[in-house]
Design a protein around this nucleic acid. Structure first.
Lengths: 197, 197
DNA sequence: GACAACATGTAATAGGTTACATGATTTA
DNA sequence: TAAATCATGTAACCTATTACATGTTGTC
């Protein structure tokens, strides 16, 4: 079994009522570094959960704002969530264009490789900042994080920083080697430089 | 654009001819920690690539073995690959049941949390060993890895070890806190212990 | 006047996975 | 004799993304 959007929605709803829009924000702010979901999967998920009686829906009209559908967890929903959490194996999959591109970097101009490394560092830094700002938000609101959530955030930050630091510490040497190899290579037959006539 | 199975197949074929079966092995042995693909996606990918003229196929019969279809990269295929590598943004997505489960660990018995951490450590160690054995294989065969490939492997190992070490260094404290919280909680209303009558 | 935030939803499409069908040979 | 390795392929299914449709209010 795999933890799908439906189950994660139940999870978000353990923290209180929410609309599909709210849940999307929660996904972005809290789960984004290990789970991505779009409206196109969240709205249908909520509809299904309501049909199964795992959530209840109440329509709310607001002044100067579109109506919203506010969902709340039912007892059945809570049970279902806990069963799912009990039986889901703790998988962790990576789908990385970055690693794949590195693997074939010898087919690319050195400039492009440098770009890849720079973009990756920027990306990781953005993720780190997002997680840190979430951390700060929870501190302010004094809605305390669970111990396992602090652990989770600590682990994510530690892992991301190690990843970034390795790139920063070894990028120079890699680019130097790559440049040396590019010069040695018999002109244009190995690398695509984009400069052949 | 996203780096799909078709493009990765072209990539594998830059290292020489291969059958679908060979390519699957390459995916498992070399890409497995950042890209997973099954036969159900590889075989159709090769058929399509052949139709597009990006690879050529030659049927080979072997004694005491089933026939195999050996694919080779064409010039068009090589060009297409390089264009894809040039234009693909270096994304890196994680889909982690492990992190998700940690996020809702307060809904689970401490024993289950311990299990999750243990399984994760075992998983990471398995991945590390796989990568190290691949590294060793390349050393033996004296088919030297490209600089960027050594970088890639170094980065993966460094990141995985940091991830594992954080878990190992902090698991005890987490479990202690979780146990303390479980005792404080007013009996069965927060946690599912599986022991209520 | 354009864009972002608020708010929900659907249809087409993408990009896989899983399970099944088939079958010989080698190894434990 | 059971299982693993070699070898290819398809059909059903799943899950989620992208793009679109619709409309208000507040901000630059």
């Amino acid at each position: 079994m795999t933890l799908d959007v439906k189950t994660l929605c139940l999870g978000v709803l353990t923290e209180g009522e929410a609309s599909g829009y709210d849940i999307k924000k929660q996904f972005e702010q809290v789960f984004s570094y290990f789970y991505v979901a779009s409206f196109g999967s969240i709205y249908p998920a909520l509809t299904q959960l309501a049909q199964e009686g795992l959530v209840v829906c109440r329509e709310e009209s607001q002044p100067n704002r579109p109506d919203r559908k506010v969902y709340a967890l039912t007892d059945a929903g809570r049970e279902r969530l806990i069963k799912a959490l009990q039986s889901t194996p703790p998988r962790h999959r990576i789908r990385s264009e970055f690693y794949a591109l590195l693997h074939f970097a010898h087919l690319l101009p050195v400039k492009r490789v440098q770009e890849l490394l720079d973009e990756r560092i920027a990306d990781v830094n953005r993720t780190i900042e997002e997680i840190e700002s979430m951390q700060a938000r929870f501190k302010d609101e004094d809605c305390p994080l669970e111990p396992a959530q602090r652990f989770e955030i600590g682990l994510a930050l530690h892992t991301l920083r190690a990843h970034r630091d390795f790139i920063q510490d070894n990028a120079r040497a890699l680019l130097r080697e790559a440049r040396a190899q590019a010069e040695t290579a018999t002109s244009a037959d190995i690398q695509y430089t984009g400069t052949s006539p």
